[in-house]
């Protein structure tokens, strides 16, 4: 169905046969319908998109279901949401049947530095992916049969990241950095989790809490918390 212009000399579109207005624009209802449909689709896109962004801000502001779904990462703007006074690094080490140990990170085919001068395992703050990196290294390399794979955390106080000239400006004492190592997870050669332990920082926080709750009795509990909390 087309509306035809009542003017007998109205220009006609050569391809569609749709009548044109005097200003040259096609007023045909099909085109109008398409135009209306596009306009309403545009309305919908704007409303849906802004609602999605608004939902993210609302959830983030009220701390409501911010981890409910991976897509929340696309609408929750939690840049620099966490911080620590400690620097962390991750090492993945395998133990062979001969009793020798092998470092699986950095990988022997070369490491990629994504943001600074660190390879990717050091960005695994929650230790969710280090196992995968270690076992991929075992899969792609030649080696003796392995018995265990260890994920080890390395930690030091960030105050020692100060360059020496700046250190000397605010400290009279020499810079004596100390690095702590802590086995965070142990896996069997087939990937089965054998032991999962709190990080260095978590184990200390737990031990301080236990000590303050139980007084002298906490010393025993302290030792336990510094060991493993999950054994398979």
């Amino acid at each position: 169905m087309t509306f035809r212009n009542s003017e007998p000399d109205a220009p006609q579109s050569s391809q569609t046969g749709v009548s044109l207005q005097l200003d040259g624009n096609p007023p045909a209802p099909r085109r109008m319908r398409v135009k209306h449909l596009r306009r309403w689709m545009t309305h919908a896109v704007i409303v849906v998109y802004l609602s999605w962004l608004g939902h993210g801000v609302f959830c983030h502001a009220l701390q409501y279901r911010v981890s409910a779904h991976p897509l929340m990462y696309f609408t929750v703007w939690d840049m620099f949401c966490g911080w620590s006074g400690w620097s962390y690094r991750t090492h993945v080490v395998a133990e062979g049947e001969s009793g020798k140990f092998y470092e699986l990170t950095p990988t022997p085919w070369g490491e990629y530095h994504a943001y600074g001068n660190l390879s990717r395992e050091h960005y695994d703050n929650f230790a969710n992916h280090s196992r995968q990196i270690g076992f991929n290294c075992l899969k792609q390399t030649a080696h003796e049969p392995m018995t265990r794979v260890y994920v080890i955390g390395e930690t030091w106080s960030k105050k020692f990241n100060l360059p020496d000239p700046l250190w000397q400006r605010i400290h009279d004492e020499p810079k004596q950095s100390k690095t702590y190592f802590n086995v965070n997870a142990v896996y069997q050669s087939d990937g089965t989790l054998l032991s999962l332990r709190p990080s260095f920082r978590e184990s200390h926080q737990a031990s301080w809490l236990a000590a303050s709750l139980q007084g002298q009795k906490g010393q025993g509990r302290q030792q336990m918390l510094l060991g493993s909390t999950f054994e398979n």
């Binding site: 981890s67 779904h69 991976p70 990462y73 929650f126 991929n136």
Partner: peptide
Amino acid sequence: GATAPMALNYG
């Protein structure tokens, strides 16, 4: 390789 799917952090 060794992917690190972001969804894993969301369980």
